[in-house]
Design a protein around this nucleic acid. Structure first.
Lengths: 192, 192
DNA sequence: GTAGTTTTGTATCGATCATTACAAAACACA
DNA sequence: TGTGTTTTGTAATGATCGATACAAAACTAC
């Protein structure tokens, strides 16, 4: 019935995500996006809406893959502490191995816009709740199996872990000392 | 010999800092700055250089006050754990009480630009070294006084604390649950 | 007062910003 | 082979970007 699209919508969104991730919202121009996505501005607007809508879509794409990865890791049949160490260690390694050192797209977005963009603020708050919930479940699992002292408050430990997730993402953007970062994991785990 | 300046240079820098802190580097326009600083563009350029130079000056102003505050706190004649708790608690409260929820200017800058601006990268790395050094000294003080187990590695504990400083600054930008954030401090301190 | 120096205000620079009008191009279906 | 529909490419919109040219204004030193 009509001329078909020349590009893959999901692939374009992925490209957009990578640009926003690297340069931030304000630092990314439509020209940056059309160049990277290899489409024209009218196609971008027709397909993804305006810049802000595309940004939100890119962010949610990122969060989905992030959550999926975390849920996968949590399902593993391994000691809970090992899972937690794996999560933290993988965050460090991923950040250090990224040649562009982009850190965490969600953290970058929070620090850039959460205080000025209510939609972004809600997404960030929602993300925190989801991840804290995953972590709290994991800790409760460790408590029922006896790996973690059951007197401890799982919600608080989850918050503590979440703080360290965020902190590691920031530090690893400027500190390249892999050994040093990994050794901090021992301190983190000692609090659990 | 000449017409004197109508505005206070240091006060203008402070105003600029507050704007950059809230809106970030890319998100701040020269117009935003001249409006807030109540000077004209030519005065801004003549006094502070270009936008990037002004930004770096603002960031260094921020870091100086931050370091001064921390060095002051560390000098207090109180138990080391109390000092650490005070530092963390004050960070939480300051972030929550800021009506603009700007978080930490250094963290915001790292996540916005450290991967694209070598000067900012160096400033961030230098800041990390300074703060980690202050924290390591504090921990060593606690070890000589017997408050902290001397088997522990002071440098690693300092890194651990630094991670939590950064993490708290990010979280407190979107999570307003003061009680909850404060209760996470117990977990942090339990690792020391 | 006058000369010399610097800051100020105005007005503008070319470049780029996000967004869109418009028409040619490319397909599906008849 | 048309007809209808949607995407594409080009080109442009007004607005704003960072940065300055220029001259009037404001001060000090003489």
């Amino acid at each position: 019935m009509a001329r078909p699209k020349k590009f893959d919508e999901a692939a374009g969104l992925q490209k957009a995500m990578n640009v926003f991730w690297k340069k931030g919202y304000a630092g990314t121009s439509i020209s940056d996006l059309t160049t990277s996505m290899e489409i024209n501005a009218p196609s971008l607007y027709a397909t993804y809406g305006d810049k802000h809508k595309l940004f939100v879509s890119a962010l949610q794409t990122y969060l989905q893959s992030q959550h999926e990865w975390m849920r996968q890791a949590v399902l593993e049949q391994k000691p809970v502490r090992e899972i937690i160490r794996y999560l933290l260690a993988t965050l460090i390694d991923a950040t250090l191995e990224d040649p562009e050192r982009r850190g965490c797209f969600m953290v970058n977005t929070i620090t850039e816009m959460a205080n000025q963009d209510t939609q972004v603020f809600r997404i960030a708050a929602d993300n925190e709740n989801q991840i804290r919930s995953i972590l709290a479940d994991l800790i409760r699992k460790g408590q029922t199996s006896g790996e973690i002292a059951s007197e401890k408050d799982a919600e608080i430990l989850a918050s503590f872990l979440f703080i360290n997730f965020m902190g590691i993402r920031v530090i690893a953007a400027t500190n390249s000392d892999k050994k040093h970062l990994h050794s901090a994991l021992d301190a983190i785990l000692s609090a659990i």
